[in-house]
Amino acid sequence: MLNAQNITVQYGEHTVVDHLSFQLQEGQWLMLVGPNGAGKSTLIEAIAQGVLYTGTIQLENRDIRRFRAAQLAQKIGVLSQKNAVGYAYTVEEVVSLGRYAYTAGFLSARDDDGKQQVEHALELTGLTDLRHASVLTLSGGELQRTFLAQIFAQNPQILILDEPANHLDLIYQKHIFSLIQQWLHQPGRAVISVVHDLSLAKKYGTHAVLMDQGKSVSQGTVDKVLTPQNLQAVYHMDVYQWMQDMLSQWPA
C-alpha cells in the first residue's frame, strides 16, 4: 500500500531521518521502534506531508505528493503526539471535523454517512457520554481518545499513530489497542505506529522498523526485529534483563 524509498529529512545541518526505506502491506501493523531522537515522529510527519523530505513515498503506486490534501486525508489518518486545543470546542465538534475530507471545497459536498461515522467513532472510543463536554475540561486520556475518534470518523485506509497509548491508563491502552487490531481485520487496511512500550509493540505489531539516529537498524517481522540483541545495540542496555527485572517485581 505504502512504499517509502530513501526518505531523508534535514533540519538545517542536522539529519533527522537518513535514507530510510520501508514498505507497508495490507493487513500489517508496522511498529516504529527506537530511542528518543531516533527520528520516528519526523518520519511520520514526512509521510503526513508535514515536513520537507527527499526521496519518494508512494501510496497505491502513486507519488504521495500528488494527492490533494483532502484526497490524502481520505486514505491516511494521522494521530500526532501534540494535541492541545486552545478553544472550548465540544468533543463532538472535534470528532466531526474528521469528516472534513469528504466535504472539503468551497461548495461543500453532502456527507450522508458522516453523522453515522461520527456516532460510531464516539461509541468505539467510549466518548458518547462526553460528546457535549468542552475539550478544555478533558483529561489527557480523554483528549487522546477524542483525537482517535476523529481519525476513526475520518475512516482512512492507513492509520498513522504517534504514541497512541500516550496519556491512556491501562484499561484504555488495552481497549484502544484491541480496537485498532479489530479495525485492521477488514481488508485494505494497515497501521503504522510509534510505540515506546516494547511489549505493546511485540504483542500487537506484525512488522517493525527499529530506528536509531535516523537510520533503519533492522526491519521485518516483529519476531525477527525485536530481539534482545537488536534492542541492546540500539538502546545500549540489556533491555531483556530490564523487562525481566520489572516483571519480577510482581510475585506470582
Binding site: A48, R68, A69, L72, K82, L97, Q154
Partner: peptide
Amino acid sequence: DNARHIGVN
C-alpha cells in the same frame, strides 16, 4: 497540524 491531518489545504 490537526487541520493538515484531516485534509485541509
